[in-house]
Design a protein around this nucleic acid. Structure first.
Ligand SMILES: [Mn+2]
Ligand SMILES: [Mn+2]
Ligand SMILES: [Zn+2]
Ligand SMILES: [Zn+2]
Lengths: 146, 146
DNA sequence: TACGCAAGTGCAAATAAGTCTCATTTAGAT
DNA sequence: ATCTAAATGAGACTTATTTGCACTTGCGTA
């Protein structure tokens, strides 16, 4: 299974004209396997834990390449470091609710909101490429606690 | 007029229990007078230009205090530095379109979008405090050019 | 399968935004 | 005019990310 998965990831990389290095494969595998929104340092430490040879520089460089090719998405939750999530091609674009107390991230998709975005862009003769829709606040768990 | 304006800004600061220092007054005056979305360094340089005595540390510290009191809003356009705009109390909350080519910022407010945000929060039993709704893309001017 | 070399990597030094320490100044109360 | 807590300036420090460069390694080719 790991062999097959590796092979599949190699192909993904090659399709996008990136050399299928062990580091990139390990990184993609990690992001594929999680629902977290990791930052670069967390990714670096996770890969290290698994006896992988990687440097921070390579983590940053790989994430940049992968983001350019839309294989991962770069997220900015406003806390001073970028986070990353894999773009699993099956699923759609989504936005985020972020709990300011515990850091939990809830994903959502709201068609009406997306439609309104397009209409705002039209009104302003603006051609959108991406957007950021992050709602910060307190999640249900943290509400109970406080 | 500058005297009257100074006096008014002093009162604003005192109402919020902040000492009305020359630095804070100058900073507020600067933000009041512009529609730009300046970052800390730009604010620092602008104040310096006007022969004001300010340090970067004070700019950062003042912006922090003012943001806490909702006199200014801190904006993160995802380019690695925070930007700030004055909360002119007359006007409402607004969101932003950001041109990735020329940096132009267009402000907008869409009631339906705001309503959808609340409904998403309700669905997830999430209590919102703030949000980020930034649409990146190409403005009409830059479309013509390219 | 062996070879060649551009692409990729590791390390450490360099940036860059923002924060902090501490000695000095100042707003505003008395 | 005096006093003191709050604010400031200068520069050292922190943290996330980038970069230069010598050293690998993937992978197309012979
Ligand atoms: Mn997500
Ligand atoms: Mn604005
Ligand atoms: Zn929470
Ligand atoms: Zn533009």
């Amino acid at each position: 299974m790991s062999a097959a998965e590796n092979q599949q990831l190699k192909e993904v990389l090659r399709e996008h004209e990136l050399k299928a290095t062990t580091q990139r494969i390990a990184l993609l595998k990690l992001l594929d396997a999680t629902n977290e929104h990791f930052d670069a340092e967390e990714i670096y430490l996770e890969l290290r834990k698994k006896q992988k040879n990687v440097s921070r520089a390579t983590v940053y460089r790989s994430l940049e390449s992968l983001a350019e090719l839309d294989l991962v998405t770069r997220l900015d939750f406003g806390d001073g470091r970028m986070r990353f999530e894999r773009n699993k091609d099956e699923d759609e674009h989504h936005d985020h609710l972020i709990c300011e107390e515990c850091g939990k991230v809830i994903e959502f998709f709201n068609l009406e909101m997306e439609a309104q975005q397009l209409s705002v862009c039209e009104e302003n003769d603006f051609t959108p490429s991406t957007h950021t829709m992050h709602i910060f606040g307190t999640c249900s768990d943290c509400k109970k606690t406080s």
